[in-house]
Nucleic acid binder design. Structure first.
Lengths: 203, 203
DNA sequence: GTCTATATCGGGATAGAC
DNA sequence: GTCTATCCCGATATAGAC
């Protein structure tokens, strides 16, 4: 939980992250994590008691490292266009470093929604504030009249989906060329915010 | 594979669908499927030899029943606005009947991409044709200049995401009220196509 | 074709030596 | 703190009676 902890503990966490991200909770094997970490299963239990506890450590860490980074831009004082640009750019940048996060979190959302909701509250996620902010911009005529919930989900959808469906998209649309897909994701930073702003700006 | 088959076989398939959709391959248990079907595990193996084969049956069925319904609208002769409206409406309508499908397929995309690609080919999915069609509309000035791949993925994203993230959204944005979320999804049929068309139409 | 009983194995977890 | 050996349960799969 603190900064340093043991070296071994960190090695385990890194290995566990690798495996849990790729296989999900049910698909992951303690043996595989041990192999990845270059040690034996017993040590994993020595440090984390159970698979469940180890998973929780990974999940909490990923979540707390991830969500705040993304949300911070949602509540600053800049204009809504800038807000959207900053959010999308930020979001895609952060996920590109660990592209398995979206499917990992989506899976968890469906496997164990309560845990996610708990984490959301814990990191101070306040969707109502975001909704209210959007509504405010609508009332002031800065953007067209739209249900703020739709807009919020649209923004998230456009950011998340290309990562969640990456293996398929990369094959079907980019001849399975990772470089091309990488470039495509980079392009989306501008493309997505442009797409959104196009749609909601008042003319 | 054919229309009727045994009654028992159908019962098993229905039960398996239920469980696999909810838990995914790794999370599903043969015992649970047997319970759901009101019989014992041995019978499942009698009819489908292995968990893997049973899963494959479910997956192929879901996929073949699902994708063609959705894609058909993508290649007709109507205008691009109508095409988008028809596609989005159709897509959301179809998924609302089996809302677990998106996360189920997304999980499989990440667990076993090759299988999905194979299925895509098998049902005659031709993304290149769709891309070309979009490009054509751009060239004719019917919509703004946009990378067709971005547009295609945007459309899919806006349709799929609210289902993949449903448990969380329902709780965080709708006080965990299924009725409200249901209405919200219905609204999206118009909302999403409007959002897209707003963004890409030439002014 | 459907059941009960059982084989077999994999994986999470613990004991105990070092 | 790290290892090997082992326990033990749960899950897939099969044998065999009916």
């Amino acid at each position: 939980m603190s900064l340093k902890e043991t070296d071994t503990e960190q090695i385990i966490l890194n290995a566990a992250k690798e495996v849990f991200f790729k296989k999900g909770y049910d698909g992951a094997r303690m043996q595989e994590i041990a192999d990845e970490a270059g040690m034996n299963k017993a040590l994993l239990h020595y440090y984390f008691r159970s698979k469940d506890k180890l998973f929780e450590a990974i999940f909490n860490d990923a979540f707390q490292r991830f969500v705040p980074k993304i949300v911070e831009k949602m509540i600053s004082n800049i204009s809504i266009e800038e807000k959207i640009e900053a959010f999308v750019d930020n979001y895609i940048t952060v996920i590109m470093e660990v592209p398995q996060i979206p499917i990992f979190i989506l899976t968890e959302i469906n496997r164990n929604p309560e845990r996610i909701v708990g984490m959301m509250k814990k990191v101070g996620m306040q969707p109502d504030l975001i909704i209210a902010g959007i509504q405010n911009d609508i009332d002031e005529g800065k953007i067209i009249d739209i249900n703020p919930r739709h807009l919020l989900i649209n923004i998230l959808a456009l950011c998340v989906f290309p990562f969640a469906g990456k293996p398929l998209m990369q094959i079907m649309l980019f001849n399975n060329n990772p470089g091309s897909y990488h470039d495509f994701l980079l392009e989306r930073k501008k493309e997505v915010s442009q797409f959104i702003i196009n749609s909601i700006k008042n003319k």
